[in-house]
Every structure is written in C-alpha cells, then in structure tokens.
Write a protein that binds this DNA or RNA. Structure first.
Lengths: 232, 232
DNA sequence: GCCAAAGCAAGAGCACTGCTCTCGAAACAG
DNA sequence: CTGTTTCGAGAGCAGTGCTCTTGCTTTGGC
C-alpha cells in the first residue's frame, strides 16, 4: 500500500504537509484565533481559494492541528515514561516523570496546549478521529498504574456507593484490570493535572505562585498519592 | 457623589449598561469568538462606530464582561458558603458546597466560564481591575480554612524543603494565619477544581465519565481532604 | 496515442469583521 | 448667547472565511 501513485498524489501529500507546517508555525506564533487561511496561503505563495482543495474549511485545518498536538503530547508522555522505566524508576517516579513531561510540553507549546485543553473553539465538536490520539497520555498513566497494581499498590479508600457502578463501567471501558477506585481516582487526577498546567499557562498563577516548578513537582507528587502510588 | 449630573451622563451610563447586557446575551448564546461589536450595535439600533464612544475596543468590552463574570462566580461561591454556614455546616461541608456552587455556575454560564478560566484570548493581558473580582472565590475558600484551623484541623504532611519559602510567601501575601502547608494545598486544590470543571465543560469527559455529578462530588470531597479538612 | 474526466490554481466576488476619520447636530459650561 | 465638548451617523480601509467560475494540467480508460 506504499506504492508511489504518481506525481499528483505525491504533490498533494507534500502540499498538505506544507500547509499544516505553516499553519502550525502561525499557531505557535500567534495563537489559534489569529490563524488565518489567507495568511497561510499567502506565505505559501498560493491564493486562498486553492487552499480549500486541501482543507475544506478552517475548522478542518484546526482539527488536523489538534490531532497532531494530541499526538505530540502523547509522544512526549510516552517517551518520558519509557525513559523512567528504562532507568528502573518506581511507578511513583514514572508518574511524576509523565506529569513533568506534560507540563514541559505545555510550556513549550502553549498555543497548541490551549488548542486541545483550553476552551474549545465555540461551536467546534471534536471529531471521532481525535479520540485515539487524545487518549495517549491517559494510556501512559494507565500503563503505570497497571504495573504498580501487579506489584505492591496502595490501598485506596472505598468509593462512595453512588460512584461504584460508574467506576466499574469506566474500568471495563478503558482501564481493564485496575481496581475501580483507582480508575476513578486516575480520571480525577488527570483532570486535576490539566487544571494545574492550565492555571500556570493561562495566568491564574500570576501574582500567586512564583516558583512554579517546585509547586508543580509537589502537586504532581500529591496526585500520585491520590491514585494510590506509594511513596519511595 | 451620587448627584445626578445631567441627562448626558445618565444616558451614558444607561447606554453602557445596555451594550454590556446585549454583549453578555450574545456571549452566552454564541461564545466569545462570535461576539461582534457590529452585531451588538445593530441589535441596539446604533451604528458600529458609535459603540466606540463607550468601549474603545472589542477587548475592552470583553474585559468588562470578564470582570462581571468573576463577580458572578464569586457571588455564587460566597452565597453558597453563607447558606452552608447559616445551616451550621462543618468546614468540610462548606468546602464541598462552594465547589458545587462553582460547578453549577459553570454549567449555567459555560461561555462566561470559558472566558475567565479557559484559554485566554491570545494576546490578551488581564488588566489589574480584574484581580479583585478574580479572587473572590479563592477568598471564600480561605475563609473556610481559616475557620477550620481555629478549630480542629487535620495535620497535613510537611512541605518539601523546596516549597517552604514559597508557601510562607504565599501565606503572607493572601492567606495570613493559615499554616503554610495548607496555603500551598489550597492553591493546588483550586487549580485542580478548575481542572475538574473545565474537563467536564470542555468535553474531556465525553465518552469517559457519565455520571458527572457523582464523580464531581467525590472529587470535591477528596480535594477537601487534600487541604486538611477532616471528614464528618 | 487520444480524449474525456478529474484535479488543480487563480481570480473575482459576497458578506462579514474591527477600527478610524470626518462631519453635523445636540448638550453642556461659562 | 457663545464656545467647547460629546455624541451618532456615514464612509471607508484592511482584513477575514468561503463560493463560484474560468481555464490549465495531469490522469486513466479505450
């Protein structure tokens, strides 16, 4: 299936990539709101209407960038975990390593982070294509917890009755094998991690937190505790 | 200072309010990105250029709405706390009541929530005028914790050395009287609360969490534990 | 190898945006 | 009453997303 199908197809792939690259550059420089199809086309030496052959609308271009961004954080998280794992780190150390990786990625790519974890562009509905890449970071955490709960895990307090069925369902859906209380705690921890990073990135910590790195390290460690990863 | 200064001044106040009201309506209906000065002017029966006599730019209009939004959540949080307090609730119950109030406000005013806690409009710098209203919710939490730590508080694990000075500074800056470990935990908990609400509102929980109310209640309770509020 | 079909770039154009400037009318202060 | 300030209206500029038409080039079936 990797046959060269001809100059036209090849060109299409290249132009599509060039558009995405230029769009990503502008996104990084100015943010999603100022990403304009016309500016991208201008920079590429084509006329704006030609661009619609490759992306049927601005939203579709944004969606492509969103998928790439999800893949980018996901890869960063997976890589950080692989490194920690190779170094023989404990599950808790792997957890914090992934948290730090997510934060570092966000600080390096603030606009792409805002694109995926900030307020969605109004009226924008995430297409199905995004859910795979979107879950890579979550899956990294699940992998860590799975490894931890084969070995010595921390006992989590029992779930309130109102949450038992929900936790069972979540476990069956995407975290098979984990104790349901851990699954629930993980989802909450993930949302909280995003909250911490967003607060730092979106200016909520201005005039409040100075030493953000130390603060985040401590918070990430506390999150690890919250999902039942024992210290040391 | 409440003297009626004349028809002109009175009219200016009324028109300014009308603009803000109409803008808020459009914000609630369509989101910040689709809020257009021209549409507001059109709806008010004036020409777009006239609107610039009242708000020098679109950003200034947004800033006014942001301040109102901060005041609106702040008031909701304070009211929830006052109710819980009047009913003789424990600090922990007051905590969760405020958390629930923030979530409820966010669900009722999603676009306004996105405006203040979502990704900031690119290039937008929050003016000083916003910091007062912005801290009302935080202050509600501080009040609860202060009351709790006059009575029986929960012992929080000691802070890592790297965070001691930072926690001391934060305490002195805006949470005088609280144990520094509690101040640090509070700031983290606040960011995490925003993370939980944002995740629900911005679609991160789609296909993941079904019973959001139960899930949030549990998470808010865990946050209370994290800031040292004892159960029961 | 030829020729219709499909893919493509370009240009003009529509409806919209934020914002600026000018001009005449109204309200104000002295 | 007079001069100044404030205001609304209109025209206009530069930019946006998106559509449609017009030709050119590549492609694939015959």
């Amino acid at each position: 299936m990797n046959t060269v199908r001809g100059a036209r197809e090849r060109a299409r792939i290249e132009v599509t990539a060039a558009i995405k690259d230029e769009a990503r550059r502008m996104l990084a420089a100015e943010g999603a709101a100022k990403l304009s199809l016309r500016a991208v086309a201008r920079e590429l030496g084509m006329v704006s209407s030609a661009l619609y052959r490759y992306f049927p609308s601005r939203d579709d271009l944004l969606t492509a960038l969103i998928i790439d961004a999800y893949d980018s954080v996901g890869a960063a998280a997976e890589e950080a975990d692989a490194h920690a794992r190779a170094a023989g780190a404990s599950p808790r150390a792997r957890w914090t390593a992934v948290c730090e990786a997510v934060r570092a990625w966000a600080l390096e790519h603030p606009h792409e982070y805002a694109l995926i974890y900030g307020s969605p562009v109004p009226g924008y509905i995430a297409p199905i294509d995004t859910v795979g890449p979107a879950s890579r970071v979550g899956n990294a955490f699940i992998g860590i917890l799975r490894a931890a709960y084969e070995g010595p895990g921390l006992a989590l307090p029992p779930l309130p009755p109102a949450l038992r069925a929900e936790a069972d369902r979540m476990t069956a859906d995407f975290a098979e094998g984990l104790p349901p209380a851990v699954t629930a705690a993980l989802v909450a921890a993930w949302a909280q991690l995003v909250g911490l990073v967003s607060a730092e990135l979106f200016g909520q910590f201005n005039r409040v937190v100075e030493d953000r790195a130390a603060f985040f390290a401590h918070a990430a460690d506390q999150l690890a505790h919250g999902v039942g990863l024992p210290a040391v």
